[in-house]
Design a protein around this nucleic acid. Sequence first.
DNA 1: TTATTGCATGAACGT
DNA 2: CGTTCATGCAATAAT
Length: 905
Amino acid sequence: MATKVCTNASCGATSSIKWRCGWRLRSGAFATLCDQCGSAYEQSTFCDTYHSKESGWRDCSSCGKRLHCGCIASKSLLELLDNGGIGCISCVRRSGSTPTDEKIDGFATRNNVTEVRSASIDNNLDTDNVDVGRPLQSGDAEGNEQNSLLQSGRDDKNESVGKIKREQIVTAVGEVGSSSFSNFNHSPIGSSLFSKRCVNKESVGARDLYDSLAQTCLSITLGAPGNTNLVLDHNGTIEGGEHSRALPSLEQGQRSRHLMPKPPKMNPGIVQDATTKEMLPQIRVARPPVEGRGRNQLLPRYWPRITDQELQQISGDSNSTIVPLFEKVLSASDAGRIGRLVLPKACAEAYFPPISQPEGLPLKIQDVKGKDWVFQFRFWPNNNSRMYVLEGVTPCIQSMQLQAGDTVTFSRLDPEGKLVMGFRKASSCATLQKLPVISSYSGLLQSMKGSPDLHINALSESFHAVDGDLNWRRIDRHGGRPNEGLAIQPLLVPEKKRSRNIGSKSKRLLIDSEDALELKLTWEEAQDLLRPPPSAKPSIVMIEDHEFEEYEEPPVFGKKTIFTVRSSGGQDQWAQCDNCSKWRRLPVDVLLPPKWSCIDNAWDPKRCVCSAAEELSPMDRENLLKLDRDLKKRRIMASQKPIHELEPSGLDALATAAVLGEERGDSGAACVATTTKHPRHRPGCTCIVCIQPPSGKGPKHKPTCTCTVCMTVKRRFKTLMMRKKKRQTEAEVAQRNPPGWGPKDEIEVDSASRGALLALDSSDPEGRQAVVLESGGHGNAVCIDKAVEMNKAGKIDLNCHPYSDDQDAQAAVSERMSMMSLLQVASLPLETYLKQNGLDSLVATEPQASSTSQAQQQPVVESEEKAPEDSHLASAGGERVTTTPTATGGNEGSCRPDNAQTDPV
DNA sequence: TTATTGCATGAACGT
DNA sequence: CGTTCATGCAATAAT
């Protein structure tokens, strides 16, 4: 029971409302109606209100037939009229205003259950045509929750309208709001209505398409017994029921994470391209299972995405009702030889028979070929919980030729209550494609990153359909076509978690590493393509004396180009013609549109036609591309490596990719210039990141230099030192015991520690900046030597003074001197430093901790005392010896508690 | 020696 | 911070 004030100003009624409304507006939003005045008002998301029983009813504008909005079960079909108001389906058909698609006919024929068509209310809903005073004929929507496991479907079928389970209603209305639940049916309004009603939508946003796609979900009915209640309809819910109720903002929640990007509403008046048409019937949309114990807690990743074709295949010619229950992407364990299929707990408890003993019970499951398999359905106690498994699945898995990444689906045949197991091969999924044009949907990309069945093909299609030409009636027809084949359909719903843990056994890779790389690359590339909006002029804001460009408008995508520098120091930008694929030289400050060809080459009249020869020699061209690839690879490598391994390559990459300094490579070949530091940094950018010289190159900074870069580095370093000292203090307090420096501990001097040495904070530009500066000072032998001497003389104890108690005393030393010395020393090659500090033994190929002197151990101890996150800080302070997890001799699996003893944290 | 079983662990995720 | 679940792994059984 809820009270809501009508948003109709002229009404203002406070209504006691019970029913959640599922009216859907043409805009894709949902409407609810006031109890009292019947006014519909639009809500931005779904209808989250309840209205009175009566308000769910409308009269057909033509015949006066009573219709229902669809939020509860009804006996009528209705449809919204373009001119506002509501019409029953028969009237609408008669008047020709509604396409009578065969699916609906077929459905109506197949089912004697009259179906409510959840109405898409026009934005201009004529509320005058709304009769809200009719009595509701349905019963109690607050009916008892059906907990009976496999029988629920059977029970449901005989449910009268009045016995519809409350949660079912919530499921339906809350999600799409357009579903009607006549005997559990999801109404088929989505496709036909959508195709008909969105004609005037000129601005087709992604969100609308999203909603529309979401509506293509197959509807399943658990309707009247004796009928094949497979409603081959593509309307229906996309997301679980209670979510809508429990979550104030569905769209910010799982919808955005698990489902399609919000696609634009299609314009049915425009014929879509054939590809899209063919694609649409295969769209998989996650659909919350309609029933089962605890189904509301079912994670969307397990929502069945079974398509109508698959259901058709499963059901065959029988009259059984297919109730998709859940699905699961097979993990390596599931598909392995062990023969244990881990069942999602919620699914197991919701859809499989309850078991009280770990031994469980045998469960007969039929596969799509009709073969029965008997698995042991059991559980293991686990963390005060249970872990459900199906044992003995190997033969079945092998029979289906499934492997990790494939998906098994579980459905139930009603009224028999038989469990049916289907599958979907991951290999049937769309292969990865680069998506240079959709990175504005960052969330989408993010979710796609974790999905092996990246539905990018279809996604791409969807975006191509942004023009609004998707024909959803096509779906209906297609959906109604039986036996189109079960497998080999592209999955269209990106879901982050579905495919996790596929791949290497312990790393729980989200996706195949190659795919991940590719996708990463795609994303990075997309980032690189971001350009400031061409028409927009940035406003310059000053932050800490640095200029930042601020744009009012979002960035746009430009054509991918490659920047090079000539040995003379000049910079070039190279773009490839879309038509002839020749590379053309452009000024560096040119921003190209996504499509560009020679004819657009206004900067080089000689080469403004495709017939003009390419300026680059084949070798140059190859170099150009090679450098671009190298850069790309470095970027991936850098992003893939853990921080402690990252730095060397990061530095290299930085050096390679950094702004063009004066000291270019002498090879004469063009080298790839910037645009890799940050997508928004372009040649000529004078920001703090870009003005720094590449490692080891460019003008040297003197210790007394007060340039912007140096001052920033100093500030940064100071902050780091302060933090470090603070942590040191905390560590000392927490660890009064002698450092865990036992025989089993080893030290390892390797490139990684070297990397850590130079790592300040690779994640932020300032950190890189500091690194670069260090490198920049690398060649300053005088400074380095001086610093080393200072260190040797004890003026600066590189190993411990950042942590020592006499830090204050050290503060007496010139801060600049101290800091710069540290920086400079830090930039020394590791071996040089070790030798200069009498740590030659550590340079040995196989360093042995036990062989080091106590004095030599000190830095190691220091290092060990640091929390892992501090290692780079410690290194920045001059420590060059670190322990690594592998150095403890344990494998990754066995190093759990043992290593903790040396961990102050 | 290999396969199976049962449980423990911890990363990922959800709240 | 709690839960889930993929996977590791030791114990046990089978070969």
